[in-house]
Design a binder for these strands. Sequence first.
DNA 1: TTGACTCCCATAAATTCCCATGGTATCCCA
DNA 2: TGGGATACCATGGGAATTTATGGGAGTCAA
Lengths: 149, 149
Amino acid sequence: MFLSTSHNKIDLKSRVSIPASFRLNLEKNNEQLILFKSLQFKCIEGTTYSRMQMYINSIDELDALSDEAFVLRMMMADSFEMKFDTGGRVVIPEILMNFSKLTDKAVFMGIGESFYIWSPNEYENQYSKSQKILKEKGPPKLILKKKSD
Amino acid sequence: MFLSTSHNKIDLKSRVSIPASFRLNLEKNNEQLILFKSLQFKCIEGTTYSRMQMYINSIDELDALSDEAFVLRMMMADSFEMKFDTGGRVVIPEILMNFSKLTDKAVFMGIGESFYIWSPNEYENQYSKSQKILKEKGPPKLILKKKSD
DNA sequence: TTGACTCCCATAAATTCCCATGGTATCCCA
DNA sequence: TGGGATACCATGGGAATTTATGGGAGTCAA
């Protein structure tokens, strides 16, 4: 599980430390890290090799000619398997740096099965947006009651 | 189950003892402790890893573009897996300290499936508020079992 | 040879781990 | 029932480890 938020520095070589807790989570489950363009936001999404495999498999279940399948295939094309250096860093591919407007700071945001990497700016925007929704609509219903079968 | 209230000290390293009864409850069930920003109050909420897993699984079942999913993901970003030292303490993440206005004292309040951590101030406020409601409206009607079909 | 990339070492700061202590509740036995 | 012994709890402090980050040497391709 990927949880928590942390702000890390990106150096001139586009290297950034993946938060230790994320790394630990990957190691524990013997997983490879995949980074790819988020389909929803201007950010990078990180997840496990296994979960990416799940996405790939789901393409087969779609109509091969559908728009959904097309978009998913494009997503694969912008996906990268990451290698760690001995310090726990990865080099962020240029395509992803540009897409998510990253320069020298990255915000890592664990969201359960995967995590986001935002530019500080975009992170602020999205975070305050969530706080606004929370204020207006209140907490999601399923928080308040135990899920029954 | 988490019950009862206790007042513990937070030291300069942001360490605080989790009440023994809470710890015992976790150990007995072989559970990890998760702390996260309450969606309802200015306090920290503590719960089990399993229960958090439940929320995460429910994200996949929601429309990924919905406000509910968005808020839930943000909740994960503000959640932290805790490690105990040999004395039964955890370090409270800075994000949570700030959010709940904690400095040197924490009030632990067991509420069943989870517990709250308040600043003494906020605790007083919420507590007297509940007493006031109780006085004005009388005790709530308890629904002890689900209506059977 | 130059530039880009990978791999590895170095380091300061932060975090984690471990031992120590005083106080309080609990137990046990006379 | 009293009183001492014991166990456990909350807390303090310091040592050891880990983390994030900087920098350089080696490698490969053009």
